[in-house]
Each structure stands twice: as C-alpha cells, then as structure tokens.
Design a protein around this nucleic acid. Sequence first.
DNA 1: TTAAGGTCTGACAGCGCTGTCAGAGTCAAG
DNA 2: CTTGACTCTGACAGCGCTGTCAGACCTTAA
Lengths: 117, 117
Amino acid sequence: MKIGELSKRTGVSIRMLRYYEAEGLLKPGRTESGYRDYDMAEVRTVERIKLLGAGGMTLPTILQFLACVRGEGPIFEPCDELRVTLRQQIRLVEEKTEKLAQNHNVLTSFLAEIGEG
Amino acid sequence: MKIGELSKRTGVSIRMLRYYEAEGLLKPGRTESGYRDYDMAEVRTVERIKLLGAGGMTLPTILQFLACVRGEGPIFEPCDELRVTLRQQIRLVEEKTEKLAQNHNVLTSFLAEIGEG
DNA sequence: TTAAGGTCTGACAGCGCTGTCAGAGTCAAG
DNA sequence: CTTGACTCTGACAGCGCTGTCAGACCTTAA
C-alpha cells in the first residue's frame, strides 16, 4: 500500500508517516520507482505509535518498545534493559493520569462556580 | 516576594515565571529598582497554572480561565463565553485520560509479555 | 499524448515550552 | 567599599512535532 492510503487508514498525515520513518519507526519497502510500499500490518503499527504518542511518549522512546515487541530475531537481551524503561513509562503515565484527574476537578469546579448555564 | 523565592516555593523556574508574565498570566508589581514583587497569593496561582499546564493546556487557554476565576470586577459576560471553552477543555481532558488508560494497558501488556523479570 | 493527481526529497518555518548566555544594575553582608 | 548573590532584559537555541512549499518524477485515465 502506498503512503496516501496508509495515511487515510490511520488518520496520520503523510508528513508524519515519513517522519516516523526518519525516526526509525517504520521501514517500508520501495517500489522500483521509489514509492514507499507499506505492508498491511503497518496499519496496526502506526495506530500503536499514535496511541503511545498520544500518551506523551516520545518517538525515540516508542522506538525502543517497537524493537522489542516486534520480536525481530532472538532479541531477549535488549528486553531486559527495556523493563526498566517500561516501568518508568508506566509510572509516568500514572502521574499524568493523576494530574489530568486533578485538572478535571479544577475544570468542573470552575464550571460549577460559573453556573452550569 | 522576589522571583527567586516564588520559584523555590512553586518549583517553577525563574525563566518560566517570566514567561508566564509575558503571556499575561502573572502581573507582579515592581520595586523601585525594577525587581518583580510577587504577592503571596501568587503561589497558588502559579501552582494552578502548573497543574493546568500539566494537563496539556496551553498558556493562552489557561489565561482565559484565570481572568474569569479571579473575578476581577464585574465580569460575568466573559464567563458566558468561557463555558463553551471550559466544556471543550473538560472533554479534551477526558479524551486524554482515555488515551492514557489505553496507553497504560499497552505498556503493562508489554511488560507482562516480556516477563515481570 | 496530455493532464491530473500521487509521490519523492529537502528545506524552511512555526508551535509551545524551556534553557542558557551576555551585559548591566541591585542588594546585603563583611 | 567590595564582593557575591540576585535580578533585570533581550536574544539565541533547542526540543519534538507538524505544516507547507518547491521542483522533480511516476502513474493512471481520458
């Protein structure tokens, strides 16, 4: 599949799909004429990246996870190192969730003070 | 109180305190010699800004809320317009929370797959 | 063949946020 | 008075992400 189609399927802009590639997150094949040629499975990958990114995870960080999760070859060692990162990230997500909850409270309080209108 | 103290009390860098001011979120008085002079109440304000910001809210957006919440004068009209923004922001926060939750799932699944180690 | 639309690369720019540096003035304690 | 810590302004730069533009090539359908 070409980049335009992947973009439509995932809702991620063409610009960003190329950026993901530049950051090493995607490695599409190329047609003879140089067009990127994506495998269907990449739709899931992109959605996963999107999700992780929405959680405030940085692309290089996501890259670490992809390398492990994809299970390319006998890579068990790197995963050891990833457990730490993983736990840190989970912790981060939890902190962010916490802050969002407080945020939600602040906002709804404001709304209440102003009057539900 | 001078900027350094406010910075220490809130954990917000001096740089950022000045930035908040540039964005209209803080309006400290000035000593004769031009030093910023903050009122004690600003500690709360800064913490509020920090919290809202941690939720991904942009400074100009926070500014809108502060103007209303501070209740400076008989400003009821602007609040009418703010209700919409407020609801949008709450919606945004909820969406982010949702994504973070999914994110958390993805991460903990990864960790489980790798092995709790 | 021609025209329209997709794609390529590379560069530039902007967003919001943050740090840092330079050069100057201020303040408090010795 | 001198020194060291603090503050001022203004500018520059970086982060990660995103859009856009230019100039060229490819593909498809009329």
